[in-house]
Amino acid sequence: MATFIQKMIEDKKEYKGQMARAEVLPEDYRFVFKKIHAYIWGKAAGDGSDMIEAQGALLDLFEAGSAEGRQVLEVTGRDVAGFADEFVRDLKQWTDAYRNRLNRAVSDKVEKGGAQ
């Protein structure tokens, strides 16, 4: 239990540090970061620790793009939602249980020859 609490404290510190980094991004980057942040956290599952890691990687990418003088849409592309989806594609999401349940139900029925 103590390890879990310590991890939560560390994650909270990391999250706050990331949000401070986001605040010093150029205006366009900061705006897009906040929009992506809200979007990906709406998909988070579990304790969110994997989302904190992804958010850190996003900040790294945005900081590098900004330092190179690139426009934010040069980094994300015009389909920002698609970019965000791809960015968190391999992370646990709250919809995973529904997806797995649907796939399992269809597979069980079809593979047993019950679907006509």
Rank of each mutant, 00 (worst) to 15 (best):
R99I: 10
A38T: 14
K112Y: 07
S107I: 03
I9A: 09
R70V: 07
R30G: 12
V88G: 11
I36K: 15
E53K: 13
F31Y: 12
K7V: 06
G113A: 11
T95H: 07
D85N: 11
L61A: 15
E10M: 05
V24Y: 01
V75M: 08
V80N: 11
R101T: 13
L102M: 04
Q6I: 11
G42E: 03
V24G: 00
A64T: 12
K92A: 14
I9T: 09
I36S: 14
A54I: 02
F87M: 09
D96V: 00
G69A: 11
A54W: 10
V110M: 06
G17L: 09
L25E: 13
A81Q: 15
A2Q: 14
I40C: 09
Q55Y: 02
H37S: 03
K35V: 07
Y39I: 08
V80A: 09
Q116R: 13
F83G: 03
T76F: 08
P26L: 08
K112H: 14
V24H: 02
A45M: 06
A81L: 13
A84S: 08
R21L: 02
W94C: 01
H37K: 08
D28T: 07
L58M: 14
L102F: 11
N100L: 03
V80G: 05
M1C: 07
A44P: 00
M1R: 03
Q6W: 06
Q55V: 07
L102G: 00
A22P: 08
G56I: 03
K13C: 09
A115H: 12
G114C: 00
G113Q: 10
L91H: 09
L59C: 09
F62D: 10
E63D: 02
D11V: 04
I52R: 13
D85T: 06
P26Q: 13
T3M: 03
D60P: 06
R99Q: 07
K12V: 04
K92I: 00
E27C: 04
E86F: 06
K43D: 01
R89M: 10
V72H: 11
E86Q: 12
A64W: 05
F31K: 14
L102Y: 12
E53Y: 07
L58G: 04
S66I: 13
D47M: 00
Q71L: 09
L102E: 06
V24A: 07
K13P: 02
W94S: 00
D85W: 06
R30K: 11
S49R: 08
F62R: 06
M8E: 08
R104G: 04
Y15R: 15
I9G: 03
I9M: 08
A44W: 01
D85I: 02
F87I: 01
T95R: 13
